[in-house]
Amino acid sequence: MAKPKVATTSLAGCFGCHMSFLDIDDRILKLIELVDFDKSPVDDIKKFTGRCLVGLIEGGCCNEENVRVLQDFRAHCDILISVGECAIAGGIPAMRNAIPLEECLRESYLKGPTIYNPTKTIPNDEEIPLLLDRVYPAHEVVKIDYFLPGCPPSADTIWEALTALLNGKPLDLPYPLIKYD
């Protein structure tokens, strides 16, 4: 029987959750016996090759590309998990949510104290994904099945969740593993 597949992605995140995932250390050898990786920065597969059992989402949605990737994950994964503060609540990127987008761009490209921008242009190439009006947590864009809080969630939290799901057990995090920081 083919091994179940796991896909991961980092949207508006810092890759810290992926780092924490790698922090499972030598347990990754055990994981490789249990699963194959599909689309993920771990193996650098860019496009889904088929149906996946679990998708791990790091980061919320700050631009249209994030939304497309997230929808693609929802379409290909049986179980979708929000991993970390940014996916669950928007996190640091969502600090811009109380500031109008226009003001953010003006500060970043025109008014900021360290800006060098002689043409006074705000980047607007069609190759650059359009920013959303604000940063959205993953579950406000697609249906999310489980949440692993933390910044990042500890390696133990991620391991606990993956092994529970791969063994068909309910995901019930013990008290010390539910942390928002």
Binding site: I88, A89, I92, P137, I144, C151, Y175, Y180
Partner: peptide
């Protein structure tokens, strides 16, 4: 409530209640 960089995190009663109740994500929109 950005817990990751709040100095009160770990000593915050709101956060502690959420932990005690096993809340992993809110069910209402932010």
């Amino acid at each position: 409530h950005f817990c990751p960089f709040c100095e009160k995190s770990g000593n915050c009663e709101l956060q502690a209640l959420a932990y005690r109740f096993g809340i992993t994500a809110p069910q209402h929109p932010y």
